[in-house]
Computed example of a mutant assay.
Amino acid sequence: MADKWMNSIGIIGGGAMGLLLAGYLSEDRKVTLYTRRKDQAELIQQNGISILSGGEEHIREIKASDGKQYEEDTLFITVKQFHLDPVIQNLKEREGKKLIFLQNGMGHIEKLQELSGHAVYPGTAGHGAQKLTDRAVRHNGQGVIKICSFAESSLEELQHLLPARSPLQFQFEQDWKHVLEEKLLVNACINPLTALFRTENGMLLDNPFFYEAFKTVYKEASAVLDSKFDIALAEEVCRNTAQNRSSMLQDAEKRNKTEIDAITGYLLKEARKKHLSVPLLEFLDTAVKGLTENDKHGIKHFL
């Protein structure tokens, strides 16, 4: 069985990034997409994945399953942080796989240390992607998927396995902490504000009042992380994904749980350790949780 699945790829998670990765990677390799729901897996199995990009639609036939066998040699884990625990528990019972984790925030890092026997790679996805249906995703902005070495995991095998070409553009990094803190800072500047203001990423730069909030979040988050990242980094992501609706905004609009705990929650925990005052981050953490709580009860917003 191991030989059959050697160098094949599994994608765990049928959200926007899972659909995007599965669709593009299936062009020239064996890919299985693992979903939480049987009806989504059956829909993709029957009709393929639809990627909308540049005004064109691309259909990719792909294997999809709601099972938990995870037989492939290389696995991308794209589920959100609050869905990670059962996946990690499953993987702890296996060994010898290459596991690439693409989550927002940094709350999952401690959990990755439990996966002995695997080569573990935390990473970040810089693409703008919007899930339209259970089988359709819109590619709103191209970026880079950074994959990092972790606990002495070698990057050499992955560099041979994964393409460096567009549209996915994989990049391999040794310093996982630097890469994840960089993405965390960008997520903190964009995701909570877009969810609160109910707007696309680019409006955070175009609206002068939104931009003032953007700059304040950057200042507070940078102090917490003790980082030297320039605000131009977060601004560039906003421009490159100007039409994208952040994952947090999409979740809030669908009345789904957001990853606010993985982003502002993590920063607030670190701020308390350092005795730092971060009032806007505290407000955003409370406000986004309040939005989704209201949504659950069908309370209408003023926006």
Rank of each mutant, 00 (worst) to 15 (best):
H160M: 09
S65M: 09
A16R: 07
Q113F: 10
T264A: 11
A262E: 09
I100E: 13
L19G: 02
F170P: 08
G13Y: 03
S277D: 13
P163W: 04
S116C: 05
L112V: 08
D285M: 00
Y121V: 08
K289Q: 13
Q40F: 06
S153Q: 08
L25N: 07
H178P: 00
T199E: 13
T194D: 00
L33P: 09
V224T: 05
F209P: 00
T78R: 01
D230H: 07
T124G: 05
Q113A: 14
G23H: 07
H301C: 07
T74Q: 07
K269G: 13
G126C: 10
E56L: 05
D226T: 04
L102M: 10
E220F: 01
K97G: 07
E235C: 06
A2Q: 13
A223L: 14
T216S: 12
L180R: 02
Q169H: 15
S247T: 07
E293A: 15
Y211I: 01
L162F: 11
F82A: 03
L132H: 00
L115T: 08
A64D: 15
H160D: 12
F210E: 02
I77Y: 03
N7H: 13
S8L: 02
N47Y: 06
R198N: 14
D3L: 14
D226K: 11
R272M: 08
L268G: 01
N187M: 04
V217N: 13
I44P: 01
N294I: 03
V217W: 03
F170T: 05
D285I: 00
T216D: 14
D230Y: 00
G67K: 12
R198H: 10
L291R: 05
G128E: 12
E93T: 11
D73G: 12
L180N: 05
T216Q: 15
E156A: 14
N90A: 12
E235H: 02
I9L: 15
I88K: 11
H160Y: 04
L205P: 08
V79T: 15
T133Q: 10
Y121E: 10
G265D: 06
L99N: 06
A287R: 12
E114K: 11
L99C: 05
I299H: 12
E253M: 13
A125H: 04
Q46M: 06
R245I: 01
R37Q: 15
E200G: 05
Q169P: 01
A125E: 02
E71N: 12
K146R: 15
L193Q: 09
E71S: 12
I51C: 07
L268W: 00
A119D: 14
H275E: 14
F76I: 03
